[in-house]
């Protein structure tokens, strides 16, 4: 999460003012949740942030809105499920800050990991996934990154979780063999992760 000052530096005056208003609305909702029908005003800001703030700042601004509104599990789930790819990405990036338990947050991560949209896959393998995915799901997430060309730099706690993981090493070795048999290059990231497992390359 980048500091607000750094985010402001990427924005023009009008965009900064727009974000200020949006955050004030989010803070207001955090104190007095909207009940019944109707959408909280900050959610409209969340949806329209791209056209007001531009691509450089939109991920961070949306994460900030989610944190400021202190969204609960049902709200985070609804915003993810009804979101565009860009909005879903923001929910995934915000997960470590929202205090959602695994029952609420892991299904969102799993949904994103089923996607082939690399923006979603990259956002799904952050610190929340590192903390909450079980070994099987986490190994498949790493492999998914290799398959879809998402840099494993995106995988949080890669060093810690890969260390001593013999099953991950086996999966990587099998994948390398499959690539070699097809006369295709083995991604550099595969060697990197394999080294982190501590296994010898065969």
């Amino acid at each position: 999460m980048i500091p607000r000052a750094e985010l402001d530096a990427r924005l023009g005056g009008a965009a900064r003012a727009w974000l200020d208003e949006a955050l004030a609305e989010a803070a207001h909702t955090a104190e007095r949740p909207v009940t019944g029908y109707g959408t909280a005003p900050w959610e409209l800001r969340f949806a329209s942030a791209g056209r007001h703030l531009g691509a450089d700042a939109v991920d961070e601004a949306r994460v900030l809105l989610l944190r400021t509104a202190r969204v609960d599990a049902p709200t985070a789930t609804r915003i993810y499920q009804q979101g565009t790819a860009a909005e879903r990405r923001a929910v995934l990036l915000a997960l470590p800050d929202l205090g959602l338990d695994a029952a609420a947050g892991v299904p969102l991560v799993e949904d994103a990991l089923r996607a082939n949209d690399t923006r979603l896959v990259a956002a799904a393998v952050g610190p929340y996934a590192a903390a909450h995915l079980d070994p099987h799901a986490w190994r498949h997430a790493v492999l998914k990154c290799l398959f879809t060309g998402v840099s494993v730099d995106a995988v949080a706690s890669l060093r810690e979780r890969a260390h001593g993981d013999a099953e991950l090493a086996r999966m990587l070795g099998d994948y390398a063999k499959e690539r070699t048999a097809a006369a295709r290059p083995v991604p550099d990231d595969l060697h990197r992760v394999l080294a982190l497992t501590g296994a010898e390359e065969s």
Binding site: N116, T118, V121, F147, T148, G149, V150, P185, P187
Partner: peptide, 8 residues
């Protein structure tokens, strides 16, 4: 980022 080799 992923444009060619790792293209999903």
């Amino acid at each position: 980022e992923a444009l060619h080799e790792g293209n999903s």
